[in-house]
Simulated scan of single mutants.
Amino acid sequence: MHITDKCTLVLCAIPEHRRAVAEMSRVLRPGGRLLLLDHVPSASSPYASSSSSSRA
């Protein structure tokens, strides 16, 4: 059974967001998916949005 978990509008409130995403990924079942949605652009690939390039 494949499970999909989602995390919405929360990473901006977590100081150690990389650690949080790593933990979310760690607890997924094999073959599971993690869907992230937040209102701030990512600065790291492969998750970078086109809007992140406009930051100064």
Rank of each mutant, 00 (worst) to 15 (best):
L9R: 12
L35C: 10
S51D: 07
V10R: 05
C7T: 12
D38C: 09
S54I: 02
A13M: 02
A22C: 07
V40H: 13
R19N: 08
V27Q: 04
V27H: 11
A43C: 05
A22T: 06
S49Q: 15
L9D: 11
V21H: 00
L35M: 13
T8W: 07
S25R: 12
D38A: 01
P41V: 04
R19E: 13
L9A: 09
P46T: 04
S53K: 12
D5H: 14
Y47V: 03
S54E: 03
V10N: 09
A43F: 09
G31C: 02
G32M: 02
A22I: 02
T4E: 13
V21S: 00
P30G: 08
S45H: 06
A48S: 12
S53I: 06
G31R: 09
L35V: 14
H17K: 15
P15Y: 05
P30F: 06
D5E: 14
G32I: 02
A48V: 10
M24N: 08
T8D: 11
P15V: 11
D38S: 08
L37E: 12
S45M: 05
A22K: 07
H17G: 08
E23Y: 02
R26E: 03
S54M: 04
V21W: 00
L36D: 01
L36T: 02
I14F: 01
G31P: 07
A56F: 09
S51E: 10
S52G: 00
P41R: 03
S52Q: 03
S44W: 08
K6M: 14
L9T: 12
C12D: 11
C12I: 04
S49C: 07
H39I: 13
E23K: 14
H17C: 11
S50P: 06
A48W: 00
M24A: 14
S52A: 15
D5N: 13
E23N: 15
S45P: 09
P15A: 13
S42I: 06
H17V: 10
A43G: 13
R26D: 06
R33L: 07
H39D: 08
R26V: 01
E16L: 06
T8L: 07
G31D: 11
R19M: 07
G32Y: 00
A13L: 05
L11K: 02
L11M: 04
R29C: 10
C12Y: 13
M1H: 11
G31E: 08
G31N: 10
S45L: 12
D5V: 14
R19L: 08
P30D: 13
V21M: 03
L28F: 02
K6T: 15
L36S: 05
C12A: 12
C12N: 11
L9W: 09
V27C: 01
V27E: 05
